[in-house]
Amino acid sequence: MRKIYVIGIGAGDPDHLTIQAVKALNRTDVFFLLDKGEEKSDLIRLRHDILEQHIQDREYRLVEARDPDRDRKAGGTGYSPAVDDWRRARADIYERMITDELGDAECGAFLVWGDPALYDSTLGILEEILERGGVAFDYEVIPGISSVSALVAKHRTGLNRVARPVQITTGRRLAEGWPEGVDDVVVMLDAHQSFRHHIEQDPVIYWGAYVGTADEILVSGRLSEVAERIEEVRAEARARKGWIMDTYLLRRD
């Protein structure tokens, strides 16, 4: 039976890897990597750096494929179908790599940014491949430090307050309104700075981009005071690097 590790590699710092993750790296024969193009080549480079730093005296193979493009202009009712199409295309690539490049008694691994259980599609894609029945394998999930955990640690605050819930949501949902029943809201990859819809409530915002990397940017304060600054540094960073990954926590009184 083929074995696959889904390894959370943290939010960008090679030191984020857990001992469990390092042990899994050193049991892996084949690492599957998706190339996201020249703009995001540093994401591939980070994975290479992690392997070079943490694997000792073991030969392994790298199998790379081009990540399929996703229709990022689709909105409204077209958003979910666009994501479904992209995930199916990814599943086709993953299935082909596992079938063609992983031997029956070998271990393969996908290195997942942050934590595989939070805001990532890898686990769902692997389940889809197993349901197709074309290739059989077992898989194990190795948790990692998520961008959310890294964000609040960098800002020296907690994710939630005593006896109070926290909700993780998307920028699209936040633009529709503040979630009911919570005062602490984490927003992932908000391309449209949806926090602007809540300036009148004036929550505190803890914002970060490229958290855990050399390009890390952190801003915090009352939203009415720092919203414009966040928009400016975000636009500058995205123009400079060609991409941005940011996360923020909104905390309402």
Rank of each mutant, 00 (worst) to 15 (best):
R88V: 11
S149C: 09
N26H: 00
D67K: 07
R87P: 01
I199K: 14
I230P: 01
K241I: 04
V226W: 07
D85C: 09
Y206I: 01
R161P: 02
Q193L: 09
I98G: 12
V83Y: 02
A21D: 01
D15T: 07
S224R: 15
P203D: 13
E236N: 06
Y210T: 01
E64P: 02
R61A: 11
L102D: 09
A105V: 10
V6H: 08
E95W: 13
D115F: 10
E59W: 00
D84P: 06
P81C: 07
L151A: 05
R132F: 05
G76V: 03
V233A: 02
F110L: 09
R156E: 11
R196K: 12
A109H: 09
S224F: 00
V211C: 05
L17A: 03
F31N: 08
V135L: 05
D49K: 12
D253A: 10
D100V: 13
V185R: 09
D115W: 11
D202M: 07
E176D: 15
I19F: 10
G78M: 05
S149H: 10
G144K: 03
D190W: 01
A105S: 15
R61S: 13
V204H: 11
F195D: 04
P14K: 06
E131H: 13
I44Q: 09
F110T: 10
P116R: 12
H192A: 14
V162N: 13
I4V: 13
D120I: 04
E52M: 06
V162A: 14
G37P: 02
R238A: 11
S194F: 02
L126Y: 08
G10V: 01
